[in-house]
């Protein structure tokens, strides 16, 4: 596999350096590792930065042919129902809009996925690596819904927001994509430049419940 594919239709480039250069996630400066070591171990809200993942935006109005190509490339069918998601060990797929999905893989697999898409996908689509511009906050705990209710206007009641549902919405004065992973665990996909603000916000909103940082 070449590191750079400048071809007729689109450009795919490897973006990760060799392994000895370690990436810095958007919350690198917050040193969450030592916070988790020295901070509280019990509380109502748990916070974890799932960092340096491979995140890609897929834009497509898939034909039947493309759907089956995508399914074989991702190893999972594209969720076509609005606000749904698919999570497997290898890949997470989040419905974002009728022609947009967020794909989450291990950090080092993003380029590989882009390359394979480039090699075998036909028709009109775009797959864009946004790994550097995005990070994931996993928030959980018995009071996590109350923390979220201070932050987003979306209805989080289990009747309205079952496990697996995904919404892009307002979060404080920024925006996030929320996916409910488990009964009391949510994934927040946030933009790099807003990560510090959102981290501050979550600390503040969790204060009365007790915040636990997990490395």
């Amino acid at each position: 596999m070449s590191d750079v594919t400048v071809a007729e239709s689109k450009l795919v480039t490897k973006q990760l350096p060799e392994a000895d250069i370690v990436g810095e996630s958007p919350l690198h400066h917050a040193d969450l590792a030592s916070v988790s070591q020295h901070g509280p171990k019990e509380g109502g809200v748990y916070f974890h930065e799932r960092k340096l993942q491979g995140l890609l935006t897929l834009r497509c109005v898939p034909s039947a042919e493309q759907l089956s190509q995508i399914e074989s490339l991702l190893g999972a069918a594209l969720p076509m129902e609005p606000l749904t998601s698919v999570t497997t060990d290898a890949v997470s797929i989040r419905w974002i809009s009728p022609d947009e999905w967020l794909i989450i893989v291990a950090g080092e697999q993003a380029f590989d996925l882009e390359t394979r898409f480039y090699e075998s996908m036909t028709g009109h689509y775009s797959l864009v690596n946004i790994s550097g511009g995005t990070t994931i906050f996993d928030v959980s705990g018995s009071q996590v819904v109350n923390m979220l209710k201070k932050s987003t206007p979306v209805d989080l009641h289990p009747r309205e927001f079952p496990v697996g549902k995904v919404v892009s919405t307002v979060f404080a004065k920024s925006g996030v994509t929320i996916c409910r992973l488990e009964d009391d665990k949510y994934e927040l996909v946030v933009r790099r430049s807003f990560a510090d603000y959102l981290w501050l916000w979550i600390q503040d909103a969790s204060r009365e419940y007790g915040l636990v940082v997990k490395a």
Partner: peptide, 18 residues
């Protein structure tokens, strides 16, 4: 509400902010 002080408005940072 909490939209005051440091949380009044998001401050966006680049990767080299620190």
């Amino acid at each position: 509400g909490r939209d005051c002080g440091a949380l009044f408005d998001p401050e966006r940072y680049t990767a080299m902010h620190a």
